[in-house]
Amino acid sequence: MAALLIRLHFPDCFVQVGGPSWSVRLVGRRDSTRANRALADGLPRADQDLPSLIRDFDAKGLNERDMVALSG
């Protein structure tokens, strides 16, 4: 019943309430305009275990702290 009541009141209480707004300039990426599969192959994979991730980051001159910061 609670979910039904929330759904019933959502459009009136949240969607129609105005708020501050501003325009944001969208310029896209500045480092590259096209994809490069060969460079993307060096990225960490979702199925890697921790020791292999540490080795891969170490090979690029990064330590465990860098890995955590970049993964966060």
Rank of each mutant, 00 (worst) to 15 (best):
G42M: 03
L70S: 02
V24D: 04
R65P: 00
R29M: 06
S23Q: 10
N36G: 01
A2D: 12
A38P: 01
S23R: 08
D12A: 14
D49E: 07
Q48P: 03
S21L: 04
P51N: 04
L8K: 13
L26W: 11
S21R: 11
D47I: 03
D49T: 04
R45E: 05
D47V: 04
N63Q: 06
F10L: 11
L50A: 02
R29Q: 04
S23T: 12
K60C: 13
A38R: 10
T33K: 11
V68I: 10
A46T: 09
D49I: 00
P11L: 15
V24M: 14
D41M: 09
D41G: 04
D41I: 10
A38M: 03
R37P: 13
W22R: 09
D31F: 10
L53A: 04
V15D: 09
L50H: 09
G28C: 05
D66M: 03
L53Y: 02
G72C: 12
S71G: 08
V68M: 09
V68H: 07
A38H: 08
G61C: 00
A59P: 15
K60D: 12
L26D: 12
L43Y: 01
D56A: 01
R45G: 08
I6P: 00
R29V: 03
M1C: 07
L53T: 05
R45A: 07
F10E: 10
F10Q: 07
A69K: 11
G42F: 09
E64Q: 08
A40N: 10
S52H: 03
D47T: 05
D47M: 01
A2G: 12
L5M: 09
R45P: 08
D31T: 09
L70A: 12
V17Q: 14
L39I: 06
V24S: 04
N36Q: 10
V24T: 07
G42W: 05
V15T: 12
E64S: 02
V68W: 12
A2V: 13
L70F: 04
Q16I: 04
L50K: 14
P11H: 10
E64P: 00
D12N: 15
D49P: 00
D41R: 14
L43W: 04
D58N: 12
A3C: 08
L5I: 14
A38N: 07
R65G: 05
G28A: 03
N36V: 02
D41F: 06
M1R: 13
L26C: 08
D47G: 01
V68N: 02
R45N: 12
G72F: 13
C13N: 12
E64A: 01
R7D: 07
I54Q: 12
D56K: 00
S71E: 02
R65F: 04
K60M: 05
P44M: 00
D41K: 09
R29D: 03
R37I: 06
R7T: 08
L4C: 05
S52N: 06
D41V: 13
I6F: 05
D56N: 05
S21D: 09
D47C: 02
Q16T: 05
S32Q: 14
D12W: 15
D66E: 05
I54W: 01
Q48V: 01
R55F: 02
R25C: 01
N63D: 15
F10N: 02
T33H: 14
N63M: 00
R25T: 03
